[in-house]
């Protein structure tokens, strides 16, 4: 019997409280401690929404992250931030991380967050997301003197340290985001570098579940072949953006012995997703990867590309559909709030 569980892919949009708090923090009007308290209040809303919707792993919403690279780039020596540039095919821009040497952490970004989230998240597990080293290098500017792939390796080292400490503080799910692997320009070599970097990070994750996430489109078959060599527990694919190609990919290449997370709830549009479309997609994916014992369901990307109201609605839909799918496809839904504590939560 296949077990189904749900977790949103990443961050949430800022509501008014978080927007105003960030504005006041950025302009220095608000003391950092007071800002933190306000952001925790805003974060509690999205954590509550995830718990109420039955998410197995929850994120804190990353409400204070201006983009996925920025908190890390700001915490590392030899990296500075330049102008803004578009993030894939979204009307969203990120600050370009410029590497002027090997990144060296001056402080850690994740452990403190995990501590704060752990109490709030129970009985669900704490999920953290780190930028994929390849994506960060490819979307940044390499002035380090290292080759891109050597720099990817150094970034992976620093992120591995982040992950080790995050797990020590209670994170149970580590997701490494490599959307660049869905880019038509991504090569087999890129995928190999990303897979090795993810493996390196995963080694430091101990007993935590690890996932390599690719989204905004399906990776090309040769890219996918390499990325499934990664020593992570799960491969997370956006199957909602280009469903036919995604299913074909799974049929042709399988899952490489990994568990599978399927991005099925459209996080870039605001309509309610069709249950029958989602069910068909999931059924086809399971059929393509017959060895699966568990399937995670998620959103096609982070939810911060839609307004807060719709992000909450999408969270609810994700939870609702996960339960219905489990019933319709003869599986079992794993919903922490109605289940016995799982081993990773014991103690």
């Amino acid at each position: 019997m296949v077990k189904f569980w749900a977790s949103v892919l990443g961050g949430y949009p800022r509501g008014r409280l978080a927007r105003y708090t960030m504005r006041d923090l950025d302009s220095g009007v608000l003391e950092p401690y007071k800002g933190l308290v306000e952001l925790e209040r805003a974060s509690a809303l999205v954590v509550g929404a995830q718990l109420a919707s039955g998410m197995r792993f929850v994120v804190d919403g990353m409400l204070d992250w201006h983009d996925i690279f920025r908190p890390f780039a700001e915490a590392w020596r030899n990296v500075y931030l330049d102008g803004i540039i578009r993030y894939f095919d979204n009307n969203f821009f990120y600050r370009i991380p410029v590497f002027r040497g090997e990144p060296e952490p001056q402080r850690l970004v994740l452990p403190g967050r995990v501590k704060g989230l752990k109490m709030l998240a129970e009985p669900a597990g704490v999920k953290i997301v780190v930028p994929g080293p390849l994506t960060m290098v490819k979307m940044g500017r390499n002035e380090s003197g290292l080759s891109d792939y050597d720099l990817v390796d150094r970034v992976a080292s620093v992120l591995a340290l982040e992950v080790r400490e995050a797990v020590a503080n209670g994170a149970v799910f580590i997701q490494i985001d490599e959307p660049f692997l869905s880019d038509p320009e991504a090569s087999r070599d890129d995928a190999r570098a990303a897979a090795e970097a993810a493996s390196r990070i995963a080694r430091e994750a101990g007993t935590a579940v690890t996932a390599l996430a690719v989204y905004f489109d399906s990776p090309k078959p040769d890219v996918y072949e390499e990325l499934i060599d990664s020593k992570v527990s799960l491969v997370s694919l956006d199957v909602g953006d280009a469903p036919a190609r995604a299913i074909e990919l799974l049929r042709e290449k399988g899952c490489g012995g990994h568990g599978l997370v399927l991005g099925v709830i459209d996080a870039r549009r605001i309509h309610d997703d069709s249950y029958s479309n989602v069910r068909d997609l999931v059924a086809k994916a399971i059929d393509a990867c017959r060895e699966l014992e568990e399937v995670g369901l998620t959103t096609t990307t982070w939810l911060d590309l839609v307004p807060l109201r719709f992000s909450l609605r999408k969270t609810y839909i994700l939870g609702l559909y996960t339960e219905r799918l489990a019933a319709d496809l003869g599986g079992e839904a794993v919903i922490p709030i109605s289940a016995k504590p799982e081993p990773y939560l014991a103690g």
Partner: peptide, 17 residues
Amino acid sequence: PGEWVRIFDNVYFRKPI
């Protein structure tokens, strides 16, 4: 009328529907 969606940093626009 739409609701607030981020463009970059803490800059938002009311993405219309």
